[in-house]
């Protein structure tokens, strides 16, 4: 079964976003042909489909949650885990594949202890595979957040994860400092 990120509780912000969607659902109507547009709308607002949303849509259209789940898992455009603050996109296009992109993917999976398509419990990282990011000369390529990292090596994976964690810690410390000085 696809991991649905049920271990990740909705944040307060996501809860309020989900509540805001309810009046829009009424506008869209209860026809079951509207299932995909509704799922798209929710993903547009929340960036993923949490389990709560699946139940909400099922109640709205009077169909079973399993049916919503079946449709949503069929399409690649829907994701069930929130994107992490550092979304890791490992390229597995032809060039990256030849250069061992799958090894890089495996390295990230092992280092972060999650599988492709999942998010770490602290929502810091999520791993995705992409088909091509358009810089095959740098293969194997990984995109972390907005930054492209070329010529990836297993040793670089460790460094990238560590750097992101340290930066996060630094930010949090500064935030605390600012708060205490105010």
């Amino acid at each position: 079964m696809k991991d649905l990120g049920m271990n990740l509780a909705l944040s307060a912000e996501e809860k309020s976003l989900l509540e805001l969607i309810t009046p829009e659902l009424v506008k869209i109507g209860k026809d079951r042909s509207k299932l995909i547009p509704i799922l798209q709308l929710i993903q547009e607002k929340l960036a993923y489909l949490p389990g709560e949303a699946i139940h909400m849509v099922a109640d709205h259209l009077s169909i079973s949650p399993s049916e919503v789940y079946g449709v949503a898992t069929f399409y690649n455009q829907f994701r069930f885990n929130p994107p992490g603050r550092n979304p890791v996109k490992v390229c597995l296009g032809t060039a990256c594949h030849v250069k061992g992109g799958d090894i890089i993917l495996e390295n990230f999976e092992r280092k972060l202890d999650i599988k492709e398509g999942q998010t770490t419990p602290d929502r810091e990282f999520s791993i995705e595979r992409v088909a091509c990011v358009g810089c095959c000369a740098l293969a194997p390529v990984t995109v972390v957040g907005q930054t492209v990292h070329g010529h990836m090596q297993p040793s670089k994976v460790e460094g990238l994860v560590l750097r992101a964690r340290i930066e996060r810690e630094k930010q949090q410390r500064e935030k605390q400092k600012n708060e205490s000085s105010e």
Binding site: M1, K2, L4, M6, G51, I54, H55, I63, S64, P65, S66, E67, V68, Y69, G70, T73, F74
Partner: peptide
């Protein structure tokens, strides 16, 4: 008339799936 089971995912990954837990 239960509709608890469904096809989930697609292609070679297709499985019989469901959504929910012991509560739902």
């Amino acid at each position: 008339k239960l509709t608890e089971l469904t096809f989930a995912q697609r292609g070679f990954n297709t499985v019989i799936g469901f959504f929910g837990n012991s509560q739902t």
